[in-house]
């Protein structure tokens, strides 16, 4: 499996789509949103706009890092015949699926870091070293369910539909999850929906750490529940999709 991990990672770091959409675009989004909404004063007990938007955009970026290297890639690999070639090699399909999930999770980290570094450099966002480590680590863990979601989407779509379906779902889950508008100004009904979504709860982990609070049990449970559902679904769907003609 290390061998497979290595080639998938090499493929990722040389993939212009990933470099651009996974790292460059999130930096741009952060600069745009933080420039528009981040500079105002903030009420006591709330996060500065630059920090809240940093967390939201880091999650937004991390989710895309997970999705862009899985869904369109798996669908493309199946459509263009690489998966068939892979079946002629002595490697278990579970090993390749796990390898892809690990690569997806790894791809989220540079995206998250890119947004954080931009926040430090451009807006002077500052935390202690331990808080940065906790913040980045929890935001990173928070987007892992999307690594598995990417595998499911890649198994259900084909080369033509994967990108559109994935982007559509990504935008919906980001918008409903409060990554585009501050949750504080969301209507109560929308907020209730947001709290059920992994996108919101991943960001919520980050907001809590940034606000010097511990992560909530609710965030952890919601994320673990999504992770479990996605893993079960992927275990059922991915092998069938790989075998299908």
């Amino acid at each position: 499996m290390q061998g497979y991990l290595r080639v998938e990672l090499l493929r990722t770091v040389r993939d212009p789509l990933y470099i651009f959409q996974g790292i460059v675009v999130p930096i741009g989004f952060y600069l745009l949103f933080s420039g528009l909404f981040g500079s105002g004063p903030h009420a006591p007990g709330t996060l500065p706009g630059t920090v809240e938007i940093m967390v939201a955009n880091a999650i937004f970026a991390g989710i895309w890092g997970c999705l862009v290297v899985t869904s369109p890639r798996i669908a493309g690999d199946r459509t263009n015949g690489w998966l068939k070639n892979l079946q002629l090699l002595p490697i278990a399909s579970s090993a390749t699926t796990i390898g892809r999930a690990v690569v997806a999770a790894c791809s989220a980290l540079p995206a998250i870091l890119a947004v954080c570094v931009t926040a430090v450099v451009v807006h002077g966002v500052a935390f202690g070293a331990a808080q940065w480590v906790a913040l980045v680590a929890l935001m990173w863990l928070g987007v892992w369910p999307f690594a598995i979601l990417g595998i499911i989407l890649g198994s259900l779509t084909n080369a033509d539909s994967a990108y559109g379906v994935t982007t559509g779902l990504y935008f919906v889950v980001s918008a409903l999850g409060g990554l585009w508008v501050p949750p504080a100004i969301m209507p109560a009904g929308m907020l209730a929906i947001a709290k059920l979504l992994p996108s919101y709860q991943a960001a919520n982990l980050g907001w809590h750490i940034a606000g010097n609070q511990g992560p909530t049990l609710t965030s952890a449970l919601v994320l673990l529940a999504w992770m479990a559902v996605f893993i079960l679904a992927a275990a059922f769907i991915a092998p069938r999709a790989a075998k299908g003609r």
Binding site: G3, Y4, R6, V7, E8, L10, R11, T12, V13, R14, D15, D77, N80, G81, W82, K84, N85
Partner: peptide, 16 residues
């Protein structure tokens, strides 16, 4: 038919 892994070099692929 069937594509191979884009982005990976021949030598790296052989090693894999």
């Amino acid at each position: 038919e069937g594509k191979l892994l884009p982005g990976v070099r021949v030598g790296e692929f052989i090693d894999f």
